[in-house]
């Protein structure tokens, strides 16, 4: 199988840090439902390099999970459609490559872990079988080899007594251990990119931290690019290099993590920051953002955030703001009054 896609990376060595891996340009994703067209993602662009961690942040329905699916090429179709844009992995346009190669890239080059590890693991196969399947299908390993590899991986993601538990089923593991199984499965073939869709949301706080640490450690080892998808600003603060803030299917702010956390530009980012308890422990009262995220069937006119925005003025409900640079800020933001608000 590797022979047919030799241009990718037959040796499967770890990429050099900083090597560009993924280039997403101007991608839109639509879902054609009976109720109308849902524009899940609109005009999305970003890059990811080896060793880099990109955090895509947004509330549910902001289009962040669909973005992940689009990259993996698993947007359910129908009803999903990608009418425009390109997703390039190294020198390959993922929307153009034949199915066979797409399958090779999935799992082998780009892997993904999901929010709920219980439902994301097949209940009727042992974890060892599910991890080992990667080796059996992609590498043609025998059952016994695959099992040994699975044990190795389980040890690597620090599942205790891996050898004894390799034959256990997903429901016999705790939530954190299950997510480790997912990670082990995703990392089995040492992918260059790992997409983690809310990897810790369903877990206890202490376990969350452990999982994030684990991902971080694994990234150090392999130089993989990591896309962290989350609604939780706090989780990614310590690990993200770049932050992509999404609202109603669009990127509303993009910047390196440090300046973003220091002082974001978009009013939505402000709102999010204020709704999160900071570990530094300031005495500020938590302020939730008023209102709820819009239905993607009926996105508000102009700036989609305007109904919830405390600073909204006339242009906000007439004109869609585009990502732009503003003075005194290193990132890009889509807000008509970014300068004034940040001011």
């Amino acid at each position: 199988m590797a022979g047919t896609v030799s241009t990718i990376d037959p040796r499967n060595v770890h990429p050099e840090p900083g090597e560009p891996l993924l280039d997403v340009e101007d991608v839109s994703v639509e879902f054609h439902t009976d109720a109308g067209v849902v524009k899940a993602v609109t005009d999305l662009s970003f890059n990811l390099a080896a060793g880099e961690t990109l955090a895509i942040i947004g509330e549910s329905g902001s289009g962040k999970s669909v973005t992940a699916q689009a990259i993996m090429g698993i947007v359910p179709s129908p009803p999903g459609k990608i009418p425009k844009g390109s997703i390039r992995y190294r020198d390959r346009d993922l929307m153009e490559v034949p199915d066979k190669e797409k399958r090779f890239i999935r799992g082998q080059e780009i892997a993904m872990i999901f929010q709920d590890p219980l439902t994301s693991l097949n209940p009727v196969y042992s974890v060892g079988w599910q991890i080992g399947e990667m080796f059996r299908i992609h590498r043609g390993a025998s059952r016994a080899e695959a099992r040994e590899k699975a044990i190795e991986l389980m040890e690597r993601v620090r599942i205790p007594e891996a050898r004894r538990r390799v034959g256990d089923y997903p429901h016999q593991f705790s939530g954190g251990m299950r997510q480790r199984v997912m990670i082990a499965m995703a990392l089995a073939l040492e992918p260059k990119i790992l997409i983690a869709d809310e990897p810790s949301t369903a877990l206890d706080v202490t376990v969350q931290a452990q999982i994030m640490e684990l991902l971080d450690a694994l990234q150090q080892e392999t130089n993989m690019g990591l896309i962290l998808i989350t609604h939780d600003l706090g989780v990614v603060a310590s690990v993200a290099d770049v932050v992509l803030l999404m609202y109603a299917g669009r990127v509303v702010e993009s910047n390196e993590a440090y300046p973003f956390y220091e002082k974001p530009a978009h009013p939505y980012a402000h709102g999010l920051m204020n709704s999160v308890a900071k570990l530094s422990g300031s005495e500020k009262r938590l302020e939730p953002i008023v209102g709820s995220p819009p239905s993607l069937l009926r996105v508000p006119s102009g700036c989609a955030f305007h109904p919830r925005c405390p600073y909204a003025l006339d242009p906000c409900w007439e004109e869609i703001p585009h990502l732009r640079e503003i003075d005194g800020y290193s990132g890009v933001v889509a807000c008509h009054f970014a300068e004034e608000i940040r001011g």
Partner: peptide, 17 residues
């Protein structure tokens, strides 16, 4: 519609599998 089917897809498995 189950998540694990999506997982299986993400693993790069053949559709038939």
């Amino acid at each position: 519609r189950e998540d694990y089917v999506r997982t299986a897809q993400a693993k790069g498995l053949r559709h038939s599998r």
